[in-house]
Simulated scan of single mutants.
Amino acid sequence: MVDAKMIHTENLKKVEDRVTQGLIEELSLEDRINEEVRVILDAYQDDMRRSGASYMEMFKKVKIELARKYKAVL
């Protein structure tokens, strides 16, 4: 972006570090959401078994809701 003159900075290293950190946080968001989905579904696994709900379908539905809640694009 600096080469394309889209941004100007006096401290390129600091900008690179902040962009890298932002990307890492964004990429780890899906992992955190997946873990939260697992915790939620574990709490309801008996009910899901009784009703015949598919774990994978419920996982997708809960994940979509959490992504919406956190305003995440997955």
Rank of each mutant, 00 (worst) to 15 (best):
R38K: 11
R50E: 13
R38W: 05
R18K: 13
T9H: 09
N11G: 06
L41H: 02
I40V: 07
E65P: 02
R50S: 09
K13M: 12
V62E: 03
G22F: 08
R32P: 04
E35W: 04
I24D: 08
V62M: 02
R32F: 04
L23H: 09
V62F: 02
Y44T: 10
G22Q: 03
Q21E: 15
A4D: 15
L23P: 05
D46V: 09
R32L: 04
R68Y: 00
K13S: 13
S51M: 09
E10C: 10
I64Y: 03
V15S: 06
V73I: 11
R32M: 05
D46N: 10
L74T: 03
Y44P: 05
K13V: 12
I33Q: 00
L41I: 00
Y55S: 06
K14Q: 13
A67P: 03
Y70P: 01
E25T: 05
A43S: 13
E30F: 00
E16S: 11
E26Q: 11
V73S: 09
T20Y: 14
S54D: 14
G52A: 08
D17I: 10
H8T: 14
V19Y: 10
Q45I: 14
A4S: 15
D47I: 05
L27Q: 13
K13F: 10
E35H: 10
I33M: 02
D42V: 04
Y44L: 11
V62L: 01
E35I: 04
R68L: 00
L12E: 15
Y55T: 02
M56D: 15
T20R: 15
L74H: 03
R18T: 10
L23W: 07
I40Y: 07
A53G: 08
L41K: 02
E25H: 09
L74V: 06
G22S: 07
K60A: 08
E30L: 02
K61D: 11
M58V: 06
N34V: 01
H8E: 15
M6A: 13
V39T: 12
V39E: 11
K13T: 12
V15H: 05
E36T: 05
A72Q: 03
V19I: 15
I40W: 03
T9V: 09
L66H: 00
N34I: 01
R18G: 06
L41F: 03
